[in-house]
Design a protein around this nucleic acid. Structure first.
Lengths: 230, 230
DNA sequence: CCAAAAGTGTTGAAAATACACCCATGA
DNA sequence: TCATGGGTGTATTTTCAACACTTTTGG
């Protein structure tokens, strides 16, 4: 418990699996490394934990550095600690996944990293164990999205039911029955229908909805569980 | 991403939340620290990650050191990285929870640590952020126990339905309808009824069952999901 | 008027629940 | 014989997937 020597001190990193959604596709934000090791290869965005910050703070810092965004949905999902996972030096990495509005990111993406959105079903070869990190994050996201209303983080504040359905189809890679999907949503009274319609997708126009987090918190505290299966 | 200095090197620990089950109670194995800091206070069993081992290996080592057990169910659930979480020195700790047969442990517990079983609803004050670790582990265990057949890890190889029900009642702190609980189990053909009865609990005697992990793996690969709600 | 997306209703099957009931047996 | 935990059966309710159906409106 107590014993350690200087050699036990090592680097701790955070790596961010950044999810976005656009045109019916769930995407991942990757960078091309312009630094060693593995310069030029695809990689997740990451950074080293500093002495004066918590893990959560480090993850938020790294995310802001790349996307310029603050206050985004960010959740730790797993620490990765194989001895040889980083070829340069022993490093334990803590994985975080982020859910961002892709459009927001695109407006202020840092040019310092050659970052690109890649559909989750077309992920290129990644450095180190980053592919395993992505897979673990995806599993966690899928699970979380069915049990907590986190999917909304990937959509604009105003969204239509069809957009939400398309998102869930993107997350799970499945087709969902529109009627049943709507019915489940209708019961969630923390989804507020706005007085406005989106007419871009159809003649009829689709009502915009809005997620009212205070109402969700109230419902949850009364034991009402969120559940949205694919 | 790339930049760090010597000061960024820090200690990584693993802490083990060790669950056991006895007499209808879900228990936690705690130690009394005979080392600084906080000598004499209650704490989780932990240890520092060494340069030549993975996180999983470190957790297993720590667990074996205390309990003498090997090959127990051990799962990482979260890394804890607040700056001041350990008052002695900046330390990131990765939390693992273990499910062990309490009786097995009691037979070979290391005397080097003053370890005690404590019911999960009577946890004393713990050092650092160990209480938050325990709470997170408990949430994870409850969730995991409903979706994966991990509860069996807490019971002997042979167990009765009543024991299993009592275990689930202990994990969730609820009362379960015996009839419905049995019916759900009857459908799980990876639970094999043995030719033997436990006559200690009743006149009639209760059949012993056995979890056949190979059969479960087969069922799972065919898409049959485990689900055992409280 | 018609194409096409938005949105509603109906139905039958499946599963969860509550709870009444039978079983075996040692004291 | 009866108290006690073990174990089964069943009527009722709830949930849910499938899919037919209606609505709206720009072109």
């Amino acid at each position: 418990m107590k014993a350690y020597d200087q050699q036990d001190r090592l680097l701790v990193a955070v790596d961010c699996i950044i999810f976005g959604f656009e045109a019916g596709k769930l995407n991942l934000l990757l960078i091309r490394r312009d630094f060693t090791p593995r310069r030029g290869e695809w990689s997740l965005m990451g950074g080293f934990l500093r002495a004066d910050e918590s893990l959560d703070e480090a993850a938020a810092r790294v995310l802001t550095e790349l996307t310029g965004l603050q206050d985004v949905y960010l959740e730790q999902f797993r620490a990765f600690g194989e001895v040889d996972r980083d070829e340069a030096e022993r490093t334990v990495s803590v994985g975080y996944y982020a859910l961002v509005e892709q459009e927001k990111v695109d407006r202020q993406l840092s040019p310092d990293y050659a970052a690109h959105w890649v559909p989750v079903d077309e992920i290129p070869s990644l450095v180190f164990d980053h592919r395993a990190m992505v897979d673990a994050a995806l599993r966690r996201l899928r699970h979380r999205a069915t049990h907590e209303p986190v999917g909304f983080e990937l959509l604009p504040d105003k969204f239509t039911i069809s957009q939400l359905q398309s998102l869930y189809e993107g997350i799970f890679g499945t087709i969902i029955d529109a009627g049943n999907f709507r019915r489940r949503l209708r019961k969630m009274d923390y989804l507020e229908r706005l007085a406005e319609k989106d007419t871009s997708g159809s003649r009829k126009g689709a009502w915009y909805y809005h997620f009212v987090s205070e109402r969700y918190a109230a419902a949850k505290s009364e034991g009402v569980d969120f559940l949205l299966k694919p």
